[in-house]
Amino acid sequence: MADDSVKTISAKFETREAADRAIEHLVQKCGVERANIFVQASAKDNTTGISPSGGDRAHGTENRTDAPLHGEIEVSADVTNEELIKAEQVFRDAGARGVAAR
């Protein structure tokens, strides 16, 4: 019999690109429903992370000046016990810091 109990896994990411990658892999590799994945700034201000990446970079060598770099991005997901181990690995592979489950 499968264990259907739910845990919340969360982690912080330095860039929006890393957070996006973790979200996509939660859906594609773990089968987590998008409605069970949550994203927010880890601090009070809106942020795209602590360093520019992806669309936050300008074309060429200069970074955009309008990307709010005010802290890390927190991603959390409600997962079953069966999904938990894979979800932890997805977070770590995407560069997560402070992975925790409760």
Rank of each mutant, 00 (worst) to 15 (best):
A67V: 14
A77P: 13
F13V: 00
S10C: 05
I85L: 08
E82R: 04
F91H: 03
V99R: 10
I23S: 04
N46A: 15
P68K: 14
D93K: 09
K86I: 02
L84Q: 14
R92F: 03
E62K: 14
D66S: 15
D45S: 04
V75A: 12
H70I: 01
K29R: 15
I85V: 13
N63F: 13
V32M: 06
D93I: 07
P68C: 09
E14N: 11
T80N: 08
T47R: 05
I23T: 13
D66I: 12
A41I: 02
N46I: 05
L84W: 02
R64S: 13
L84N: 06
V39Q: 15
E14T: 11
V99L: 05
R21W: 10
V27R: 12
V75H: 08
V99C: 03
E82G: 01
G71D: 13
V90Y: 04
L69C: 14
G49W: 03
G60E: 01
R97Y: 08
I9C: 06
T15W: 10
M1Y: 04
Q89C: 01
D4I: 08
A18F: 01
K7E: 10
A101C: 06
A87Q: 09
A100W: 08
V99Q: 12
G95I: 14
S42K: 14
A67G: 08
I9H: 03
V39N: 04
H70G: 00
D56S: 14
S76T: 13
I37P: 01
V27P: 01
T8F: 02
N81H: 01
E72K: 15
D4G: 03
E24M: 03
D4V: 09
E33C: 00
I23D: 03
V6L: 13
L84D: 03
V90F: 10
T47F: 10
E24S: 15
E74F: 01
D93H: 12
I50D: 02
A58R: 12
T65C: 02
D20I: 04
